[in-house]
Simulated scan of single mutants.
Amino acid sequence: MSADQTEHRFVLRRDDGFVRVEWNRGVTVSERDARELVQRLEEVNPDVCEPMVAILNSMVSLDAAALAILANDLNVSALAIVGPTAVDRTIAQYFREVHQPAFPTRYFPAAAAAIDWLRTPGHSN
């Protein structure tokens, strides 16, 4: 197995009432990465549908298959996408408008506001 196949390109953990995913800085997310996130979320949070905060960390892009997997297979009640750059904002907008996830999705330039939004009624299960 190559180093790329064993290296996680994100950190996933449960926090206080939500799940947090932090992508490695400057990553391009592939279909494989998206499938791994869905699988790891199920391992960390089996049979529970909590809100998620996703920290993009200057993400470069996501391929179309990755976006489709995240929109269709991610078991979350809401998704707050966080990143301070114009690229982060564009990724979030494209994901929400083109892939139309079944859960509420919103962009924030900073994590504190994103977490406050996730904790409002209607965003947790």
Rank of each mutant, 00 (worst) to 15 (best):
E43P: 04
G26A: 05
E7P: 01
E97R: 13
A34P: 07
F18S: 03
D33P: 05
I69D: 01
S77N: 05
A3Q: 12
N24R: 14
A110I: 06
T28P: 00
E22K: 15
Y107V: 03
A86Q: 13
V44K: 09
Q93G: 04
L12G: 00
P104C: 04
R89F: 05
E43H: 12
G122D: 04
V82Y: 06
V27L: 08
W117L: 02
R40A: 15
F10L: 07
V21W: 02
P84C: 01
H8Q: 10
T6M: 10
T28K: 14
V87A: 09
M1Q: 13
S77V: 01
V76R: 05
S2Y: 06
R14I: 07
V29Q: 10
L37E: 07
I55W: 02
D47H: 15
L79K: 04
H123K: 15
L41F: 03
N72E: 15
I91G: 02
L70I: 09
E50Q: 12
D47I: 01
E36G: 01
V76K: 08
V87Y: 01
S77G: 04
T105P: 04
A92K: 06
I115E: 15
L74V: 03
V87K: 12
P101K: 04
L12N: 06
N57L: 01
H123M: 14
A92F: 00
A54H: 09
A71K: 07
F103S: 11
V11W: 08
G26K: 07
H8A: 13
L118H: 06
P84W: 00
L67V: 00
V48Y: 03
G26R: 03
G26N: 06
L118R: 03
D33H: 14
R20Q: 13
N45E: 14
I69A: 07
V76T: 13
R9Y: 08
V11R: 15
A80W: 00
V38I: 13
V60Q: 13
S124M: 08
E31D: 12
